[in-house]
Design a protein around this nucleic acid. Structure first.
Length: 253
DNA sequence: AGCCCTGTTGCCGA
DNA sequence: ATCGGCAACAGGGC
């Protein structure tokens, strides 16, 4: 689930409900935690989240003590607000109204960390510019300086952050480009078109709360199965870099 | 029951 | 540098 639009939706939810004073913190310690539970508690208990910033698939929750809680959701992470949602809970912020803001993760892939500088954290990890904020020129440069399959580049968080398996397929589908097209075979006009298409898809997804049920039926994401019909043909499944990849051979060259 | 699948990422080796 | 394979993990589908 968690690609850029999904994480943006989590950001919005977290911002909306997470700003109250945190009474206590529930930590379900596992490999995701890069800092001790006492450190987590020290920063969170008695404080509040004042804003939430997203970069790529990462969330940075600004804490009123000046530090930031870092969250990455792996394949199955999510943020759940309410009561009695303890299934797969990794981290729970408990408020005086009895409700909690819970970071849940079925497969326990992802990161819980603390930092005091977002830019520093991002650059140390080598994460590229956010896909929603990258300029056309930056995008051209990023693509142009790469090689290999276009899909791999779109998904490479070090080159550009936020695009995952699902949205990479969508961008390529709507750009009429085969996922295994080599970078050096791309025309400038195709790169520019891909850029506009990427922004359009991401914005639409966010506008629809990252819920694929609300996306147009013409979207690949609504027809992500082998043999499904698209306007000019039927959907095929291959593997690119080990990842399941859906595309339409009749429109994607 | 058991095997294969999966929205992420990082490491290893050809 | 690039790419495939595998591993972390756990639940769902067949």
């Amino acid at each position: 689930m968690p690609e850029l639009p999904d994480v943006e939706q989590m950001r919005s939810n977290m911002k909306k409900v997470g700003g109250k004073k945190i009474e206590s913190v529930h930590v379900n310690k596992n490999r995701m935690f890069k800092v001790s539970d006492s450190t987590i508690r020290r920063h969170l208990v008695g404080n509040r989240i004042t804003k939430v910033i997203r970069h790529g698939k990462y969330l940075f929750a600004q804490i009123s003590d000046g530090t930031l809680l870092v969250l990455h959701f792996g394949m199955t992470g999510d943020i759940v607000y309410g009561k009695n949602r303890y299934d797969h809970r990794i981290l729970g912020l408990e408020y005086s109204n009895g409700k909690n803001l819970n970071i849940v993760s079925v497969r326990k892939l992802g990161i819980v960390d603390v930092t005091d500088d977002i830019d520093n954290y991002i650059s140390k990890k080598g994460i590229g510019p956010d896909a929603l904020r990258i300029s056309k020129e930056e995008f051209r440069r990023t693509i142009g300086s790469s090689s290999g399959f276009i899909k791999n580049v779109l998904m490479d968080q070090k080159k550009m952050a936020g695009i995952g398996n699902i949205y990479a397929d969508e961008i390529l589908y709507q750009s009429n480009i085969h996922p295994k097209r080599r970078i050096n075979k791309l025309k400038d006009s195709e790169i520019d078109d891909m850029y506009q298409t990427m922004l359009r898809i991401l914005k639409l997804a966010i506008r629809h709360n990252a819920d694929p049920d609300n996306y147009p039926q013409t979207y690949l994401i609504s027809n992500r199965k082998e043999g499904a019909c698209c306007k000019k043909g039927h959907i095929k499944k291959i593997r690119v870099n080990g990842r399941p990849t859906y595309y339409c051979p009749d429109i994607q060259k």
